[in-house]
Amino acid sequence: MKAAVLKSFGSPLAIENVPDPVPGTGEVIVDVVATRVLSYMNEVFSGERNYALDLPIIPGPGGIGRVRAIGPDATKLAIGDWVFCDPTVRSRDDAIAPDIVLQGLTAAGAGGMRLQKHFRHGSFAQQMMVPTENVKRLGAITSDEATQWCALGTMLVPYGGFLAANLQPGETVLVSGATGNFGSAAVSVALAMGAARVVAPGRNEKILADLVRRFDARVKPVKLSGNEDDDRETMKRVAQGPIDCVFDIMPPSVGTTVVRAAIMTVRPYGRVVLMGGVGMAGGAGLDLPYPWIMRNCITIHGVWMYPPDAASRLIALVRAGLLRLDEYETTAFDVDRANEAVAHAAAHAGPFKLTVIRP
């Protein structure tokens, strides 16, 4: 099969023929029809992000495709089924605290690196091997629609955060980082889950206005000034009532004062979800007042990805018409142009933009 292979950090992807994957018990082979390219893939491949990857590797986290082969432990899947390949792979020998690898992207800790040695190759290829439990049925779609369904991978991240925070219909959410790719998805997902309003702070007034255009007056934009205290008070005022949940998805380049300004808008007994990259590039840590957390009974959730059943539940939201995939503007490349796709994703990293490889 043809695949794009990362052989060393800082080098282009090599487009070459590699052996087809061979399934064992507990594994499924999927013909990859479409897979998203993360906007920061260039930073992963250069080594700038210092992601844990045992090279050489076929990159690509998750994808949309059709089942080619199944193992004896699969009782619901059938050859030809359209599926989403969930990249969040968990070790099977510890249900309470499993090691995790993002297939084709990175791993967490020594256990995750061991897991990556088996489930190492991702979706920038014509076929990929996926754990049986990570193959989620989509129902009937067309090949063209597979490109749009790649947006699931982006929406799943904030969905996991809101599940951890037990977001309830009618609540008010603040999305810190709302003008980014994952942040704009968080706005969409929160509203699909029944949020009454979403406070959307940011510096880019054009993007803020576009969020209001897309989702109506339920989105409450806030133009940030850079003054922590002033911004906090403005966000509280615009919310028009208590903020039940703050969701942070800021990138590594953002300072902690911006994050703190958003977090400390949450009401007493409120919940905070941290899913961003702040601090990963070094610098000061996130300084939150101990008395404020304790006396206001604030719950802070650190969340990496989402629970195993999240993908199936999110697919149901799409099928019910509550979450729209057609919000995304997609640009597709074939696998021979994988390096062009990576460059395109970096240059078009805005909200509701999706770069896709169709192997």
Rank of each mutant, 00 (worst) to 15 (best):
L286A: 06
P169Q: 06
A311R: 08
E329N: 12
K117I: 12
H121Y: 10
Y328F: 15
K117D: 15
W149A: 05
P291N: 12
A261G: 11
G183E: 07
M305T: 15
E48Y: 14
T106V: 10
G71M: 03
G111F: 09
R260T: 14
C150D: 03
F182T: 15
G276I: 01
A209Y: 12
A151F: 00
P61Q: 08
Q127E: 12
F215S: 11
V238G: 04
M264F: 11
E228M: 14
D93L: 10
L323V: 07
K223Y: 13
H348F: 13
S176K: 08
P351Y: 09
G65Y: 00
V303E: 03
F124P: 05
A262I: 11
R232S: 10
F215P: 13
A284W: 07
A74Q: 14
T179Q: 06
I70K: 07
R92A: 15
R137H: 06
V89Q: 02
L13V: 04
V259L: 15
M129T: 09
I64L: 00
V342I: 12
G60L: 00
T330R: 02
D326G: 04
V259C: 04
L77E: 01
G226V: 09
G104N: 02
K76N: 14
Y269R: 14
T132I: 11
L138N: 07
P56H: 07
G180D: 05
N296Y: 03
L163K: 15
D229C: 13
G350S: 09
T330Y: 07
V187Y: 01
H121W: 10
V30F: 08
K223M: 13
V356A: 04
A262H: 09
A69L: 12
K76E: 15
T142A: 01
D31Q: 13
F84D: 08
W149G: 02
K2C: 00
G277W: 06
G80Y: 06
I57P: 01
D99E: 14
V28H: 00
I207N: 11
T142D: 05
V278P: 05
M193W: 05
V246Y: 10
A311C: 01
Q116Y: 08
L156D: 09
L208V: 11
A209V: 03
D73A: 06
G60I: 02
R324M: 04
V219L: 12
V33Y: 06
T106L: 11
L55T: 00
S253N: 13
F9T: 10
R319S: 14
A140Y: 07
W82A: 06
W82H: 06
I207F: 02
E205W: 04
V335G: 03
S11G: 01
M128D: 08
I293Q: 05
R213M: 11
V278C: 09
V258T: 15
P359G: 09
L317Y: 03
G282P: 03
G279T: 02
A239R: 07
V44M: 11
S176F: 11
P308C: 02
P307N: 05
G112I: 05
R68Q: 12
